[in-house]
Amino acid sequence: MLKDLGTPARGLVRSAGMPREIRRRRTVLVLVILACFTLIVLDARRSAGSPVEPLREAAAGVFGPLESTASSARQPVDNLRDRFAEMDRLRDENEKLKKDNESLTRDLNSSDYARNRAAELDKLLKLAPAFTMTPARVIGIGSAQSFNHTVTIDAGTADGVHVDMTVLNGNGLVGRVVRTTQATATVLLIGDRKSTVGGRLNASMALGFVSGRGEVAGLLDYHLVDLKARPKPGDKIVTWGSSDNAPYVPGVPIGEVTSVTANEGALGSTATIRPYVDPTRIDTVGVVTGPPARPPRAQLKPAPSPKVSTTEGKVN
């Protein structure tokens, strides 16, 4: 077979000049392609015992620190990118902050009652218990050519990060951990096509599923379980959490509904969601590594007096 491949198809005179060289380079090509196919077949099943795993471990061991160092060197790059956007951004921000300030002052005057009530409800539902977090920095980002919406963070099993842990930042849900090594972890972003998150509509408590579209902007699709429920633009969506808090803990904001389209030829509707987290600008994230500081299913007292419950809320 190799001999056949080595026979040049055209130009006998030319092939007589360097048949050995041609044969050698084709042998190399065939060997390399065979090696690639072997790798693909070995790794295609994605089972836990893939023989490529040790290779990934070793690569992460070598390149984790390298990426970490290179990330520190990206400050000038970031500055360059931000310099152009800086003035506009500051002006916009100033305006927005002024407006926010006004509305917040207005809200403050009327919100005590609402806040107490919300704190009480929160305590009842235990929707957002305080989880133990491990902070981490993003040191590598998957490119759009590879269709992967994944990032590397600089925390691994040594820091208590394991597969199927929730990753979030100050704005909302980032994704979940899919692969870990000693000092790094790979995070699948919610915008990836392979990602599906259970999402609860804040306004009506209806349940649904948020799935990624694989777009660079990170837009998400939202399908409600209840076919009759119609989400409205502006509705906010939070995670409803999984059993044992893996892979997603409850109560993490995901995003906001921007538009709703009825499904063609079927019941129900699909909502487009703009995530709170801009996938191109994630830097510092937190990995939920521990259970909530208090048990999420505390027993409810039959008739707690409102005064006691608010003071408890402050203590917690």
Binding site: D43, V52, T150, T186
Partner: peptide, 8 residues
């Protein structure tokens, strides 16, 4: 990392 596809 962050590669998450089939190696090869």
């Amino acid at each position: 990392p962050p590669a998450d596809h089939t190696a090869g």
